Computed example of a mutant assay.
Amino acid sequence: MLLALALPATAAAGRSAATVSGQILSLSTAAQTLTVQTASGNQAVLRVTAASHLWRNGSPVGLADLALRDAVLTAQVDSRTLRVVNLRARGPAVTTTRGGLAGIDPSLQSLSVTTPAGPRDFILTSATLFVRNGHAATAADLTARDSILVHALAGAASEPVAADVEADGPEASQVEGTISAVSGSDVTITPSQGNAVTVHVSDSTMIRLHTSTGEVAGTLADLKTGLRAEAGFDPVSFVAFRIEAAPADGGGQQQVSHVEGTVSAVDAGAGTITITPRTGSPVALTTDSATRITRNDAAATLADIKVGDHAAAEYVTATNVATRPTRAIQ
């Protein structure tokens, strides 16, 4: 959700100019945009062109060199088009890697990116921010067709730690329901309401199986009729980017509960958060790298959520692990 941003206008060389400052919430090298949240909580989507001048920590940079969480000290923009004229940002030292998605560890603790010099691996932590097509995401939302941009903390001696990951790729359609047929490389999923959808499994389709002990990589042979499944697919070709399913033993078919209320405790190090509803007992939840967390509709980590925030979460009833988007509103 984007809030309207009132920008002060000044006359500059015959055009209406404005100044923006705040923090970078998301960026897209494909769309050539970045979203800045101001101190008042408003968000502005700024356009970057070949004529835009960008600096980070005093050095000229390109859009891909700006990182999520960077402080925008000042950005001069055209108030009519929000095109960036000059932008100065500050942030910790990071390295920038661009390429394609080579793979994700089933536990979602590592990411591999294809580069001209070969694959490069990154460690994912609870502090890693994910954005896909300019929106908050998780590692599970990435597809093999995405262009990947990774900012890693500088100075890592071995496998670098990803501070943030930006992905750009085709928008996916979604279907969730029961697998009603598997024929060759085609999988038909029938939702509880609406028409059945048949998606095609290609070599690039990522298949994940959810079990009672965690998540594992799967293959087409693991997809059986009767399983619950969710697929993201190209709306034109119907090629599946990803398919997530419960295994035949039913271990992944878990009841999900919902809680909404006030954050009464949060421990980013332990990955836990407690939400106290208006009525009823507090609910203590555990998060993992598959939990999508947003704050004020922007990608966030558990460390960004504060006691007193209004929050909502969906979680596995049996384990209290937050599996669906956890959102906090300041």
Results as ranks from 00 to 15, higher is better:
125 T>G: 11
120 R>K: 15
110 S>Q: 08
329 I>H: 14
257 S>W: 08
182 V>P: 06
223 L>N: 10
50 A>P: 01
209 L>S: 13
169 G>S: 09
144 A>C: 07
303 A>W: 11
29 T>S: 12
187 V>S: 07
187 V>F: 02
282 P>F: 00
80 R>G: 11
55 W>P: 00
300 A>W: 03
321 V>K: 04
219 T>E: 10
286 T>Y: 02
121 D>M: 09
81 T>R: 09
4 A>F: 14
136 A>H: 01
50 A>L: 10
53 H>C: 07
229 A>I: 04
32 Q>V: 01
48 V>S: 02
301 T>I: 04
14 G>V: 06
58 G>R: 05
307 V>M: 03
23 Q>D: 12
7 L>M: 12
26 S>A: 13
168 D>F: 06
274 T>K: 09
209 L>C: 04
322 A>G: 03
169 G>Q: 04
171 E>S: 15
195 N>R: 14
44 A>F: 00
144 A>I: 08
297 D>E: 12
328 A>Y: 07
169 G>E: 05
175 V>R: 05
15 R>K: 14
304 D>E: 10
64 A>Y: 02
181 A>V: 05
7 L>C: 12
238 F>I: 00
106 P>W: 03
295 R>T: 10
88 R>P: 00
227 L>A: 15
200 H>T: 15
84 V>A: 12
265 A>F: 11
136 A>Q: 01
323 T>D: 10
19 T>W: 05
75 A>H: 04
42 N>H: 14
178 T>W: 06
119 P>I: 13
53 H>D: 13
85 V>Q: 14
53 H>Q: 15
180 S>T: 15
116 P>T: 12
269 G>W: 06
73 L>P: 02
125 T>F: 01
25 L>G: 14
173 S>E: 15
239 V>S: 10
282 P>A: 01
94 V>S: 07
264 S>A: 12
98 R>M: 15
18 A>M: 05
34 L>A: 03
134 G>R: 08
212 S>G: 12
121 D>G: 08
12 A>Y: 14
196 A>V: 09
77 V>Q: 01
19 T>G: 04
236 V>G: 01
283 V>P: 04
248 A>I: 13
293 I>W: 01
263 V>K: 09
37 Q>F: 06
27 L>G: 08
172 A>H: 05
51 A>Q: 15
7 L>E: 03
173 S>C: 08
103 G>N: 07
172 A>T: 11
127 A>F: 03
83 R>Y: 05
304 D>K: 02
224 K>G: 03
114 T>L: 13
9 A>M: 09
61 V>H: 06
302 L>A: 02
206 M>W: 07
128 T>K: 00
52 S>M: 02
74 T>F: 13
286 T>F: 04
79 S>R: 06
289 S>R: 15
197 V>D: 11
262 T>V: 12
99 G>V: 13
236 V>T: 14
233 F>M: 13
310 H>P: 00
202 S>T: 15
164 D>P: 04
4 A>Q: 13
213 T>M: 06
